[in-house]
Design a protein around this nucleic acid. Sequence first.
RNA 1: UGGGAUGUAGUGUAAUGGUAACACAGCAGAUUCUGGUUCUGCAUUUAGGGGUUCGAAUCCCUUCAUCCCAGCCA
Length: 560
Amino acid sequence: MNTEETRNKHFIEKIIDDDLLHSRVPEGTIVTRFPPEPNGYLHLGHAKSIILNFSLAEEYGGRCHLRLDDTNPEKEDMEYINAIQADIKWLGFDWGDYLYHASDYYQQLYEIAVSLIRDGKAYVDSLTPEQMKEYRGTLTQPGKESPDRNRPIEENLRLFEEMKAGKHPEGKYLLRAKLDMASPNINLRDPALYRIKFATHPRTGDAWCIYPMYDYTHPISDAIEGITHSICTLEFEDHRPAYDWATSIDHIPHTPHQYEFARLNINYTVMSKRKLLYLVKNGLVDGWDDPRMPTLVGVRRRGYSPESLKMFVDKVGVAKVESVVDFALLEFCVREDLNKRAKRVMAVLDPLKVTITNYPEGESEFVEVENNPEDPEAGTRMVPFSRTLYIEQEDFMEVPIKGYRRLYPGNEVRFKGAYYLTANDVVKDEDGNVIEVLCTYDPESRGGTTPDGRKIRGTIHWVSAEHAKDATVRLYDKLFLTEAPGEATGDYLDDINPDSLITLTDCKVEPALAEAAPGEYLQFMRNGYFVPDSVDFTADAPVFNRTVTLKDSWSKKKGK
RNA sequence: UGGGAUGUAGUGUAAUGGUAACACAGCAGAUUCUGGUUCUGCAUUUAGGGGUUCGAAUCCCUUCAUCCCAGCCA
């Protein structure tokens, strides 16, 4: 639901308001539905549709059905049917008792088709696919009527019955609606209603060998379920007349209406099932749930929260303009949400050893660090501190650049929650690389403040060397290098980002992180938001995925 | 080029005849035990051309641009 203080209603809400005002809604309540075809995993584009449909139902006190649109057994699979349900639940929506499948209506759909034939409104056609194409005409030229268009009703009835009984091979016959072959709208040039397919359906098995088409099934399914507002994407605008035709067939119990909105497009990614499937099948990613994928299983494993997705969809809005949303908006929403809920912890991704020369050898202590400055309820935790620590390589410069306020010789910085340290000397390897920084600490600064109240410009994170756990950290970046993958060369694969995944294996993390729970939202202080990987994380070998970086104004400034 | 739709800052979305706005992105600055957060400020917008009107993003005409449709896919 919309959590903004106020937001202008979008055009679908305005339509609903108007329908409610004029009592055009049976039962006085709206009914929406999310109708995916179970032929792949759900992605961010589906999330927009799911959130739109379910939120509308919540907002108006109506209900939202989940209907699996399973009318093409060649493409559909139980794997997808299950995954879709899991994804919707993860998003936080519940269809309650209203789980349906288009296949639930096969018998009814069949009977309606028979009545259509009886009424002379549908006929069995024997045109081959090639002839069909030819007879259909073109965008600028009307089609012509099939010789079978005036087949006697009795014969149509008999043939359709034979189709259903499996007496004819695939492609031999087709049941078509008798509409208008000269219509400028090609969807009205006697659309196919039923085709023969000897395929095993994931739910009905081999019970049927004729399967109803989308333009016939979808509107009638909506009508049967009492859907009031059937919301779909823009490319179905041309199908609305077919939708209206189907819902006006005699004895259809109710007349739903279709409204179209613009699908969600995001730059730097691809959203078509075909392309995503290709990435998976060819090992360009590690599966549908690869954290770089725009699939719901992918972003979930990446560490995006359902709330951040809802915020994103809310900010994107609902309109009829074909648009491409900036990836940065998605990342903003993720940060915005995670900032409130992520537990702050310290993890060093690129370790550099620091030794405190005036800290007693062999000793250690615990310092108290807050879990989330944004959330007073989050409390604090105790983190071990000792003579030898790790900090980020980035946080030390032997010769500091302008504006640098981290550790450098002679500079005093605060080690988060612990003490003030001053760098005095470095140890180098034979190549001249700094491999260790020698510091002294001020025992008076324990807890991060001193009695004299002196100001410290820099605060950096750290872990105690002897207490730290080794961890693997996966840094994810955009899957594509360009805003519109494939736009320049015609092949989206040309724009794949070779560095979309960087795996760091020598990271040092706070000991408590070994007990992190997969899916727990974390912020590695100053590094970004991370989540334990839901597949590979173990206490012995922790693996973390970077969800999103922190906003970073320093690297920009530094680059100038 | 037949039909259907759509054009508002860089991006997305409001404003439906009465001061063009919100968010993201960008750029400054302040605050800060995260160069994060928070706060403040700045720059940038009605596709073009006509018309109606005291007044037009909004109404009319026209041009242009973009998207969708010729599956026995959804």
